[in-house]
Structure formats: structure tokens, C-alpha cells
């Protein structure tokens, strides 16, 4: 016993080092899986508060571009509004699963953004108090951004699509062939769409949108354009490089999408099992 205690006292620094190192590795491994990085994330009172106050200063520098983005979005929405002949819509033809009846949007502003790591995350200034929950989708007016991960009272962190852990269902706009959206860490402008069946008629310049196969994103949110594609090693599926519509390095305001029916759909799926 004496010897064991002596050994511990003699090597206390090494043991402390080993313990702390193991703890850090444990935190690292935890951060690689969804919703497990509970202790160490920037959606907390201190770091959220500091980022929020620094963002309240720095956002003034981007006001001009932000206005431009809003103007473009308004322009697009107005043109849809004016070109739709409202009187001609037959009420029996209105799709009951259309966008506005199933989804709720919450606007938020990004207070921290990263895009140079392999597991990038963003932080926004809305949290549980504003009605956010885990696993909600996040978009901008141009395209998708990511999925909500950890939440605190006033802040929430988002797993960016530029994150090796991110896997999002996506499809071709013109057909219903779908695949999984991943990121190979090479460029912050290009993401990869894998497992797209060989039979799909992919062309360079095609638009990729979100698929409706998950409860997170509504179908048809724009993602990006096909820049090039090749068959994978087994020659059964395409791996497609997709250039994002969003500039992920410059994101100011985002919308969080809540699918009001998500719980019902999840219950239904769980009953099947």
C-alpha cells in the first residue's frame, strides 16, 4: 500500500497529465457525435454572451451587404407574388402539405461562424426561450446552413453542412433521385452528394435541393449546383460535387425551420419498428 501511494506521489504530474489528456480526448470523441457535447460548447452563458456583444459591434460593418441580400430576397418573393394570378387558384387544387401550413419559421442572427475546421459549427442568438428545439433545420434566403445541435436558454449551436458529421438528405430538383450530402473538408464552397443512383440523369449545372425524406427540412430548399460528378469505386453510385448557393464564410441572418408535424411523423415511424 505504502508503495502504491509513493508511486502516485512520485508520478503525480504524469498521472495528472494522463488524466487530463484522457478527459480531453473523451470530450473530443463526444463532440463527434450528435447532441453529446453537452459540457463544452459555445451555446452557453459566457461564450454566447461574449460572442453576442462582439457581434453587435461587427454586424454594422456588414449592413450594406445584408441590405443587398434582403433586397434580393424581397425582389424574388415580390416577383413570385405578382406573377401568381391569385384569382385563378382553385381551392380544391391547393396542396394541403404546402409550406406554410406545416412549418414555422424563427429568424435569428449568427454570432459565431467557423469554416476552416473539419467539424464546423455556428452559434445563433436564439435558444430554448425562443421555442427552439434540437434537430431543427437552419436556412438562409439562399440555401441551407445546417441543423441545430446544442441549446441553452438564449443561444444555440448549429452543425454546419461544412462538418464531417453532417449528413443531409438531398435530391435532384428535376427528378426524385436522392442521395446524402456530406463534406470532404477540402473547400468551403463545395460539398459532396454521395450515393446518388447511377440511373439518375445528372448533368453539370443541375440544381440540388433538399429531399423531403426527413422531418428536418421541407422538400425543395435550394442547396447548390452540380459542378462535376463521377462514379464511385464500385461504379454503382455517383459522387457529385455541389457548389453551394450560400457563401458559408459570410452568414448574417438565418431562419430556423420547425416542422410542426415532426413529432407525429416520428411517432408513426417508431410504431413501425
Amino acid at each position: 500500500m505504502q508503495r502504491i501511494i509513493n508511486f502516485i506521489i512520485r508520478n503525480q504530474n504524469f498521472l495528472l497529465f494522463a488524466l487530463l489528456f484522457a478527459l480531453s480526448v473523451f470530450f473530443t470523441i463526444q463532440s463527434h457525435s450528435y447532441h453529446k457535447s453537452k459540457f463544452i460548447n459555445s451555446a452557453n452563458f459566457i461564450s454566447g454572451g461574449i460572442y453576442n456583444s462582439s457581434n453587435s459591434i461587427s454586424q454594422y460593418f456588414g449592413l450594406k451587404e445584408e441590405n443587398q441580400v434582403l433586397l434580393e430576397e424581397n425582389n424574388r418573393l415580390k416577383s413570385i407574388l405578382f406573377n401568381t394570378n391569385v384569382t385563378n387558384i382553385d381551392s380544391s387544387l391547393v396542396d394541403s402539405t404546402s409550406f406554410d401550413s406545416k412549418y414555422r419559421l424563427i429568424s435569428a442572427s449568427v454570432i459565431k461562424n467557423s469554416y476552416s475546421l473539419t467539424t464546423n459549427k455556428l452559434t445563433i442568438n436564439k435558444g430554448v426561450k425562443d421555442g427552439l428545439k434540437e434537430d431543427l433545420g437552419v436556412i438562409t434566403s439562399k440555401g441551407i446552413v445546417g441543423i441545430l445541435d446544442n441549446l441553452s436558454g438564449n443561444y444555440a449551436s448549429i452543425i454546419s453542412i461544412l462538418n464531417t458529421n453532417s449528413k443531409i438528405n438531398a435530391q435532384l430538383k428535376k427528378t426524385n433521385h436522392f442521395g446524402t450530402l456530406e463534406w470532404n473538408t477540402v473547400s468551403s464552397e463545395i460539398v459532396q452528394l454521395v450515393d446518388m443512383p447511377k440511373i439518375a440523369p445528372v448533368n453539370i449545372g443541375d440544381t440540388i435541393v433538399t429531399g423531403g425524406r426527413s422531418t428536418i427540412f421541407p422538400k425543395g430548399i435550394p442547396i447548390g449546383l452540380v459542378t462535376d460528378f463521377k462514379l464511385d469505386a464500385a461504379e454503382d453510385y455517383y459522387t457529385i460535387n455541389v457548389k453551394l448557393f450560400n457563401d458559408m464564410t459570410n452568414i448574417g441572418h438565418v431562419y430556423v425551420i420547425e416542422n410542426i408535424d415532426a413529432e407525429e411523423i416520428m411517432n408513426l415511424l417508431n410504431n413501425d419498428e
Binding site: 478527459l23 480531453s24 480526448v25 473523451f26 470530450f27 473530443t28 470523441i29 463526444q30 463532440s31 463527434h32 457535447s37 463544452i40 460548447n41 459555445s42 452557453n44 459566457i46 461564450s47 461574449i50 460572442y51 459565431k112 467557423s114 475546421l117 467539424t119 459549427k121 452559434t123 449551436s157
Partner: peptide, 9 residues
């Protein structure tokens, strides 16, 4: 790490 959401690296 807390500020940059990087686990424990």
C-alpha cells in the same frame, strides 16, 4: 475549446 466548439482538442 468552449469558444470554438471543438470538443477537447
Amino acid at each position: 475549446d468552449m469558444f470554438s466548439d471543438s470538443g477537447g482538442v
